[in-house]
Simulated assay, not measured.
Amino acid sequence: MKLLFVEDEPVLIEEMENYFSSHGFICEQATSFSIAEEKINNYNYDIIVLDITLPDGVGIDLITDIRERNLDTGIVILSARNSLSDKLTGLNLGADDYLTKPFFLEELSARINALYRRKTLKGAENICFDDFKIDPVSKRFFFNEEQIGLTRKEYEMLLFFVVNKNRVVSKSSLAEHLWGDHFDQNDNFDTVYVHMKNLRKKISCASGKDYIKTVYGMGYKFTF
């Protein structure tokens, strides 16, 4: 899952990034309205954690831009003000949840995971295709109830493909999702190919099928 934290408090944003990075999330930071606006217009995120009060703008004003770009992006508003009007304004504009400071990171994590399952995975406890099953909670992958060992990146790649099934996914969007929005500065996609090769091999060895198709000049498509 790829997260963007829009927050101008240095200690809090570092705490959030360290916590979620240690739990396997891809994390990006925006410490001002202008930086957040640039990132939102250039990259896609699964969840955006958005502070209302920023040094150069109001975080709520970014919600419309987010929704115009991607209806499936989850938005969690943060605010030091326990104001009903702020909450209602944000929710009416398209935010999904609201958390008042101070808060426990564990609570934010629970809300983010619930939101991700609800929006991206459509609330599914398990994701199944043919005789395969993905358990998003334990992050495990099974074929006929036998676990297939995947590395963290292989699992993230598989989940990204399944969520985007029957869509052509470019190498750059795949790399951006797995390694963050700095990876596109590097034109070497050898790492993507290695993880792709290993994932395809593990899936095909289990089932005899290759679900990941190469679309020449465009990228890849996961079909089942």
Rank of each mutant, 00 (worst) to 15 (best):
Y116A: 03
D210C: 06
V168E: 13
V76G: 02
V215Q: 12
K39Q: 14
N144P: 00
K139M: 13
A95P: 11
V6N: 04
D86M: 03
R117N: 11
I26T: 08
I75M: 01
L99Y: 11
V49I: 15
R111T: 04
L121M: 11
V168C: 06
I48G: 06
G123S: 09
Y116H: 02
A95N: 13
V137C: 08
E146Q: 15
L108I: 07
K201I: 07
L99R: 09
V162N: 09
D96N: 14
I40F: 15
A80E: 11
L50G: 01
G180R: 00
A80C: 11
E37L: 14
S34C: 10
G24E: 08
D97R: 10
G208E: 06
V49H: 00
K171V: 03
L71W: 06
I52A: 00
F141T: 02
K153W: 12
E17G: 04
I52W: 10
K122L: 04
S204C: 09
F222E: 00
L12T: 07
S204V: 07
V169C: 09
E145R: 09
Y216A: 12
S32L: 02
D130M: 02
R67M: 05
G217E: 05
H23I: 13
K119I: 15
T223C: 07
K119V: 14
T31Q: 14
D8R: 08
L78H: 07
F25C: 07
H23Y: 10
N42C: 01
N166S: 13
D130S: 05
F129I: 01
D8L: 04
W179N: 03
M157Q: 00
R200H: 10
G57L: 03
D181K: 12
L93I: 09
D184N: 12
S173T: 15
D61M: 05
D131C: 05
V11A: 11
N113C: 04
I60W: 07
P55W: 01
K39P: 09
V169F: 02
F183K: 12
F132V: 06
I26S: 05
V58C: 03
E156F: 15
I35L: 01
Y19S: 01
T214G: 08
F161V: 02
L178T: 04
G94M: 11
R118D: 11
L121I: 13
R69F: 14
G59P: 05
Y193S: 13
E145S: 13
I13W: 05
E37N: 15
S34H: 13
D131A: 15
D86L: 03
N44Q: 08
N186V: 02
Q185N: 09
K39F: 15
S21G: 08
S22H: 02
R118I: 00
V137Q: 14
D181Q: 12
R111W: 07
L159S: 11
A110T: 06
L91P: 06
N42V: 03
E28G: 12
I134F: 03
G24A: 09
T191C: 10
D61C: 05
G94D: 10
L115Q: 00
A110P: 02
E37P: 08
L91I: 14
R140E: 15
V215M: 14
F161C: 01
K122I: 00
K197Y: 15
L150K: 04
F161L: 03
V169G: 03
L99P: 04
Y216G: 09
Y98W: 07
L84S: 02
S22A: 14
I66H: 06
